[in-house]
């Protein structure tokens, strides 16, 4: 009974969030385009599915994944886990002591990206538009690998306290260089994959990891160092997707 109430509450909340989008779409459809929508019934059914699906998805995340993920991020960054029971933090911290954190950052970055609904959507579309040249799973794995590397590097940055813009600007330079060598067909999709990845599943978990680290590593400020992981997670997929296309092209070129 309580569960049913929660589901209804969640569907209501999601509907409120979706309301602006729906009113813009139907407003323009009726006032500007003024043509009937093809298969209107089917489209509305689709919208209802999206609404119900997203609500259940968010409810499940809040019930299962987020508390567990936050708890784990908390436990992994806790000094008593990293420096043994006594939990004495040395004056000069060694970044290598945080190896479990890096491994967790990599694994959670990869796995949450695979489950990200908006990335699934873009991968389906890219597969369809490219006539099958871009595989749904190939793209998703490439993006997930980028996010994993990005978040790992972002965690390293929080531990060491290096300024974020060094990393981001270096990343930009790599992206620009890659752009000249990558197959033209992949470039816009690669740029898109940066923004697509950081969404419903990834952001809350990654934010928890960043805040946990910034809170426990001595000399870090939660409010300043806790941010920035998302930026890493949206920059590195651009590189990994272009690299994926470059490697695929290279392999195809060699076999011919």
């Amino acid at each position: 009974m309580e569960l049913l109430f929660k589901i209804i509450q969640m569907i209501y909340d999601t509907s409120i969030d979706v309301l602006p989008i729906v009113s813009i779409i139907f407003g323009f459809q009726f006032l500007v385009i003024r043509r009937p929508i093809p298969n209107l019934k089917r489209v509305i059914t689709g919208f209802v599915y999206v609404l119900v699906g997203l609500s259940l998805f968010l409810l499940g995340l809040e019930q299962a994944l987020f508390p567990l993920g936050r708890l784990m991020a908390d436990q992994l960054t806790n000094p008593s886990f990293i420096y043994g029971e006594a939990g004495v933090i040395p004056h000069v911290i060694n970044w290598a002591d945080y190896y479990w954190v890096y491994l967790f950052a990599f694994a959670i970055g990869f796995s949450t990206t695979i489950a990200e609904p908006s990335l699934i959507a873009v991968a389906i579309k890219a597969h369809e538009v490219s006539g099958g040249a871009i595989g749904v799973w190939g793209l998703r794995r490439a993006v997930a690998l980028g996010v994993a590397v990005g978040i790992t590097l972002g965690s390293y940055r929080i531990v060491t306290g290096l300024p974020i813009h060094y990393f981001i600007i270096t990343g930009y330079i790599v992206v620009v260089i890659q752009t000249f060598f990558a197959p033209k067909i992949i470039v816009p999709l690669a740029y898109d994959s940066g923004g697509v990845t950081t969404s419903t599943v990834t952001v809350p978990l990654v934010a928890a990891l960043g805040l946990g680290l910034a809170e426990t590593v001595p000399g870090r400020n939660v409010l300043i160092d806790g941010f920035g992981l998302i930026a890493f997670a949206s920059l590195f997929p651009i590189m990994s997707v272009m690299a994926y296309a470059q490697i695929s092209e290279y392999i195809a070129g060699r076999s011919n």
Binding site: L3, I25, I37, P38, N39, R42, V43, I44, T45, G46, F47, V48, Y49, V50, L51, V52, G53, L54, S55, L56, F57, L58, L59, G60, L61, E62, Q63, A64, L65, P67, L68, A115, P117, I120, A121, I124, K125
Partner: peptide
């Protein structure tokens, strides 16, 4: 128990979302 039911919700929700995506969001 919350984790088990929550995981079921996530799976069900993702399924519905992808159904609706191809029926509603993409076509509109």
């Amino acid at each position: 128990m919350d984790i088990i039911t929550g995981t079921l919700f996530i799976i069900l929700g993702l399924t519905f979302f992808i159904y609706g995506l191809e029926m509603g969001l993409f076509p509109i």
